[in-house]
Design a protein around this nucleic acid. Structure first.
Lengths: 274, 274
DNA sequence: AAGCTGAGGTTCAAATAATGAACCAGTAAG
DNA sequence: CTTACTGGTTCATTATTTGAACCTCAGCTT
């Protein structure tokens, strides 16, 4: 395991921990040695990624990510452009909406708009979603070419609930359905009782830059409603694309099946993750 | 140099580069070997800190920092709480206001509110500011105890302009002035022609958690105006503190001279950066 | 078409950095 | 006083990182 991977793992661990943990807590949670953990925390703190309360000696996420996030959003204003559309989708569906971006081999939730219902799905901003078990993840996968899908199929597909698609055949089936409809659905595939529908947000070249999803409790949301939500999500996704990349038409079809078929640049993958 | 430090350096380099650079550009800019640079970019991309455009093969900041920033802001909502106060300060002073947080050995600008003047100071959100040469940096340093100041005095003080304080005596003088007034000023100490005044934002224990600064062009802002701005900034800083930590009084004085004098927990520094 | 040039990406012996069991010190409870 | 936790540190051992040289591809010049 590379040192960087360990540092990132530590950062993720820290991000996932409820409140301000001490050194031992973090070492336990991340499964690393206490000495190693501390060395990394110190090193990360030198760059502001981690902060330590000098009195309680507990650690927390630092402000460096806030700075990087600002730069990222300035150059590539995804979350901020997408926010009003997410609100619109909450207004039409009544359910919680979340917007995610690809981050490594998962999706990172970068924006959440809560439903007004008292009984609603609550999504933590910043949650990391698995690709094969969530509507968002499926919507994302459905835009990928066969070569890019290999990486996902290669790793074991964790079953989060009984409804999770764990075989590659099931998954392929769902992705095909998603490509056909323009959106993907998950009926409690990640968390039991949570129904969701999601559509991918594509860039000018048909590559998925993010997803937008509607999620509601099974008590209120049935299959029919989910299909309705999916259609709305796909519609909003098109609006977001127009806002992000302008209105000019490009050659690709609605489901982004262009690049990997037409423009495979060379045999070697640009970022190979062996 | 530790691997993590190199990775962070790379991330900072990438953040500072104007647009999407290629591998060689990044290697040159960061002063690292091409192979090393690439390995790190790949590793960082696995966690979403860096993204590569698969067609142009150029690299950019990824969305992982956005995720971490959301979590950080949720737990410790500095930037979002501070924003309306920054706007208020723009309204009263007419000049550009920026809010920074400590990030390692510098200050990271986490929020900027622009002046309405056509001729105004433009500050990039995400800029990293040196501690000894900016009003914000001085305001921050002025809250530290002698032990904590050592680290800054130990490193050579870069002269950005003729007005930069480069001797420890000059610096100590300015910090004393800052403690007396409750704000610090910089008359072109970082960039010629930019006048600025800043006040530290303290937590309940008197430790600086950030700074708020007003910056205007020398053409319009003279020493007298700067003092006025400083007073306003200090006032707003107090309001921000009330918003952040509630209204309950704590024992420390207005300039935060408590903790390091009364509660030095032990001989060993909590985070020693040797 | 042959020959450059410079891009991104890769290799492997050599150099360097990370590791972790055992350690110290402080603190709080019994 | 003892016990059992903290957070933090040490240093011989071990594993990772390094970078000069290399490859391949695309675009440009002759």
């Amino acid at each position: 395991m590379s040192t960087i991977a360990k540092a990132m793992h530590l950062l993720n661990t820290l991000a996932d921990m409820r409140m301000e943990p001490g050194l031992t807590d973090i070492a336990t949670a991340s499964g690393m040695d206490k000495a190693t953990t501390r060395r990394m925390l110190v090193e990360l703190s030198r760059f502001g990624f981690v902060e330590q309360d000098l009195l309680t000696r507990r650690y927390r996420l630092g402000s460096a990510p806030v700075r990087l996030a600002r730069i990222r959003e300035q150059r590539y204003p995804f979350a901020s452009i997408v926010a009003p559309f997410a609100r619109e989708l909450v207004a039409t569906t009544g359910e919680t909406v979340h917007v995610s971006e690809p981050a490594g081999d998962r999706l990172a939730t970068v924006h959440v708009e809560m439903s007004d219902y008292t009984h609603r799905v609550i999504i933590d901003p910043g949650q990391l979603l698995p690709l094969h078990a969530t509507a968002s993840g499926l919507a994302y996968l459905s835009t990928l070419g066969p070569a890019e899908l290999e990486a996902t199929f290669a790793t074991p597909l964790t079953a989060f609930t009984a409804a999770t698609a764990t075989s590659t055949d099931q998954l392929r089936e769902r992705l095909n359905e998603g490509r056909r409809l323009g959106y993907c659905i998950s009926e409690g595939g990640y968390e039991a009782g949570v129904m969701s529908a999601a559509a991918a947000i594509l860039d000018a070249k048909g590559r998925a830059r993010g997803t937008i999803a509607v999620a509601g409790p099974a008590m209120r949301v049935d299959r029919a409603k989910l299909e309705e939500f999916g259609a709305h999500a796909a519609e909003i996704a098109r609006s977001i694309e127009r806002a992000l990349w302008g209105t000019q038409k490009t050659g690709q079809d609605r489901h982004g099946r262009t690049e990997w078929m037409t423009a495979e640049r060379s045999k070697t993958r640009a970022i190979s993750q062996s």
